[in-house]
Amino acid sequence: MSNLSDAKEKLKKFIAETSFKSIDKIQDDSMIFRDGIFDSMGLMTLITFLEENFQIQVQDTELIEENFESVNAIFRYLEKKSSN
């Protein structure tokens, strides 16, 4: 996965644009769902974004907090997917 290096910035930009939040409010450890930044539609939009931008397929069994709760969690998930 060649574009993983700038993944965090891309992710933050996407989250900020989709949720109408200022990008400096989106920290690596911000709890995206627990803090109400994203709802159901946000999660569905995020999945589509990841699949289209990082050439991965998100499996239903992977839809857990450990993989999606924050920018850090999503980054670790992308790393794991790229090493498979």
């Binding site: 709890m31 769902f33 627990r34 994203f38 709802d39 159901s40 946000g42 999660l43 569905m44 999945i47 839809l63 857990i64 907090e65 999606f68 709760e69």
Partner: peptide, 8 residues
């Protein structure tokens, strides 16, 4: 039972 919202 999680803090992730459901998907359809």
């Amino acid at each position: 039972l999680t803090n992730l919202p459901p998907v359809f």
